[in-house]
């Protein structure tokens, strides 16, 4: 199931692993994505740590880890095709995968309905 943060990341948790990206709302607000900086595989992240940067034509935005875990894989397709985030933010435009996850205590996650209500 997808969960969301107030900073507009999404996280899909499967067992002890998770996939992370930015929400449809986030990509729409950023506009055309031109560059993505992703964490190195093996990096240990705590919930709330900056995990990377997404840049659009107009601005750069920090991306924060929604939960704690270890980076196991990054979406290397984004290097050459950062526009995947605009085209498919919550699927093909995923940013990275984590293993050994532990739930967030910093920023409670929202389910899709709660996130929709949060967006207003």
């Amino acid at each position: 199931m997808m969960h969301y943060t107030k900073e507009h990341e999404w996280v899909k948790i499967e067992g002890t692993g998770a996939t992370i990206g930015i929400s449809h709302h986030a990509q729409e607000a950023l506009g055309d994505i031109t560059f993505v900086e992703l964490p190195p595989v093996g990096k240990v992240l705590k919930a709330g740590d900056a995990l990377g940067v997404v840049e659009s034509v107009k601005a750069a935005s920090d991306i924060y880890a929604p939960i704690s875990g270890t980076v196991s894989e990054v979406n290397t397709q984004l290097d050459g095709s950062p526009e995947l985030i605009n085209q498919s933010p919550e699927d093909k435009g995923w940013l990275c995968k984590l293993t050994k996850i532990t739930a967030s205590d910093a920023d409670p996650l929202m389910d899709a309905a709660a996130y929709k209500a949060f967006l207003g």
């Binding site: 031109t34 560059f35 900086e37 940067v53 840049e55 750069a60 950062p82």
Partner: peptide, 12 residues
């Protein structure tokens, strides 16, 4: 001066 960056990341 005009400059070009190595990668796609922008200076601001």
């Amino acid at each position: 001066v005009a400059f070009k960056l190595e990668g796609r990341q922008s200076a601001r």
